[in-house]
């Protein structure tokens, strides 16, 4: 589904990703862990197409297409979704309007019929229930004045609505207490399917107790320096990142 080969990315002239390789198959859940500054968020933004990330080398192929040549909205239509670490507030833009706009833009981009207001209302109620987002937050401005947990739930709501093929969760656990984390993880788990892949980016192992990965990778200095199964995450939790970085330095 997603194939990243030798990806080099500069941000403001500084090389952040230095030859990253990653293969994600259909239906797989991959976790990327790494210390601060290792390039985790850069990876997620590059995949979503944010400005300011200069790819100097390498390629990203998503479902046979060159992802890096696509506009952010085209990536969304193709089925890439980034749940952001810091969801953006859109003052004055009603959340419901935003969600409907996004859904219909994506449906249109995928060559599907747009949903009318009645069908949308039915769908959004159902999905909001899934992530336990209070209905009153649908009537407010997007993310404006939302708590950290509400913002993340709103992200997962969007994910549930847009039904991506590849969902990237960028530090979705940051700033969440354990209850909020559980709700968010349950939402994510309910969206797991053989057709949908996940890339879960996180600093802590905690999230992976709830969202169980098939593969775990360690990102450091802009490269994946180790891959393994979920036991690697537990090992990292126990020993921290120090040992792995030392081993890498010694090698």
């Amino acid at each position: 589904m997603l194939s990243i080969k030798n990806l080099h990315v500069n941000v403001e002239g500084k090389e952040i990703l230095r030859g990253l390789n990653l293969e994600i198959g259909k239906g797989e859940v991959h976790a990327i862990m790494g210390p601060n500054g290792s390039g985790k968020s850069t990876l997620s933004y590059v995949l979503a197409g944010r400005d300011g990330y200069e790819v100097t080398e390498g390629e990203v192929i998503f479902e046979g297409k060159n992802l890096l040549e696509m506009e952010p909205e085209e990536r969304a239509w193709a089925g890439v979704f980034l749940a952001m670490q810091y969801p953006v507030e859109l003052p004055g833009v009603n959340n419901m309007t935003f969600l409907r706009e996004a859904l219909n833009a994506v449906r249109k981009g995928r060559g599907e019929e747009e949903l009318d207001a009645v069908a949308f209302m039915k769908l959004i109620r159902e999905k909001a229930e899934l992530v336990k987002l209070p209905e009153k937050l649908l009537k407010r401005s997007v993310n404006a004045g939302f708590s950290g947990g509400e913002k993340k739930r709103n992200e997962i709501l969007q994910m549930a609505l847009l039904e991506p093929k590849l969902a990237i969760l960028d530090e979705t656990d940051s700033g969440l207490d354990i209850d909020a984390l559980r709700v968010v993880a349950e939402g994510v788990n309910s969206l797991r399917s053989p057709e949908r892949s996940f890339l879960v980016i996180t600093h802590y192992q905690r999230l992976l107790d709830y969202i169980e990965p098939d593969h775990v990778h360690v990102l450091a200095h802009g490269q994946i320096i180790r891959s393994g199964d979920k036991s690697l995450a537990l090992e990292l939790e126990e020993k921290g990142y120090g040992w792995i970085l030392e081993e890498e330095a010694a090698a």
């Binding site: 909205e73 980034l82 859109l90 833009v93 996004a102 833009a105 994506v106």
Partner: peptide, 19 residues
């Protein structure tokens, strides 16, 4: 943020202005 949710650039600008 809007574009990452599939909303084209121009429409994103309109929505933000409306907001």
């Amino acid at each position: 943020y809007l574009r990452a949710r599939g909303v084209p650039q121009q429409r994103a600008v309109h929505l933000l202005c409306e907001g």
